[in-house]
């Protein structure tokens, strides 16, 4: 069973998954897709060092003569029992990571106090898929321990590969192969950018140069051998 199948099977049964691997391979896409299968709504947040807890949980906003509470994406997902895709967990600030400790706690004990005085508990169906590029070792042990499944993904999602192959013969296979040598892998985003430029009327060489940069000549040579470019 490959890593993506493992993930799909795991996503059906567990509520807190942690996916990590190189960028552009479809971790967030797969997370969103799997959560959509089981949940009514899915929220996606991308964390960074400067993102504050208020943006995720919610904050008061002025409305005429009074303040109104405005739920953030995490509060909404908790309240509605929706899915939550959290991208780049490892890049979050310490405060956000501390807040996630409560969000990711076991549903029986998880509870977050809002400034409104309300205590928010996750509704049935609440599930989280967290993604990151870096190794989970960099995460705080307590936070990491809250994930039911921690899975490393090393290859692009099969749907991305087949989509690329449909659009240009051999392109998806080429991207997939490149991931067997991780430091030199070609991100699928580069391939989609290439196809998009071609669709917009760019010449083959120009599109390749704009998308793949200095390695465009190597990519063109290998595309010919993979039957991607008819000569």
């Amino acid at each position: 069973m490959n890593e993506w199948q493992l993930f799909e099977n795991a996503a059906k049964t567990v509520q807190r998954l942690y996916l990590w691997g190189p960028p552009g391979i479809g971790k967030s896409y797969a997370g969103q897709k799997e959560l959509e299968k089981n949940n009514r709504s899915v929220w996606q947040v991308t964390l960074n060092d400067d993102l504050v807890v208020q943006e995720l949980l919610g904050h008061f906003v002025p409305n005429g003569t009074h303040f109104e509470w405005n739920d953030g994406p995490i509060s909404m997902a908790l309240r509605q029992g929706g899915g939550l895709v959290i991208n780049e967990v490892a890049r979050a600030s310490g405060a956000v990571k501390d807040m996630l400790l409560s969000v990711l706690d076991d549903p029986e004990v998880s509870s977050i106090g809002l400034p409104t005085g309300e205590r928010l508990k996750p509704k049935d169906g609440f599930a989280v898929v967290a993604t990151a590029n870096r190794s989970p070792e960099e995460l705080d042990e307590a936070l990491l321990d809250r994930f039911d499944v921690i899975l490393q993904i090393t290859k692009p999602h099969p749907e991305i590969i087949s989509l690329l192959n449909t659009k240009m013969r051999g392109l998806g296979a080429m991207i997939e192969d490149s991931y067997s040598d991780p430091p030199r892998a070609i991100s699928p985003r580069r391939a989609f950018s290439f196809l998009s430029l071609l669709e917009k009327g760019f010449l083959l060489d120009d599109a390749a140069y704009l998308s793949f940069g200095e390695r465009h000549r190597d990519v063109m040579v290998l595309m010919k051998t993979h039957g991607g470019i008819n000569v």
Partner: peptide
């Protein structure tokens, strides 16, 4: 300097490679 990064794994269908 912009460097070229060869793609031997694409040609070989497997990897990884050490490139010098």
């Amino acid at each position: 300097e912009r460097k070229n990064i060869p793609l031997p794994a694409v040609a070989a269908g497997k990897g990884p490679f050490a490139v010098n």
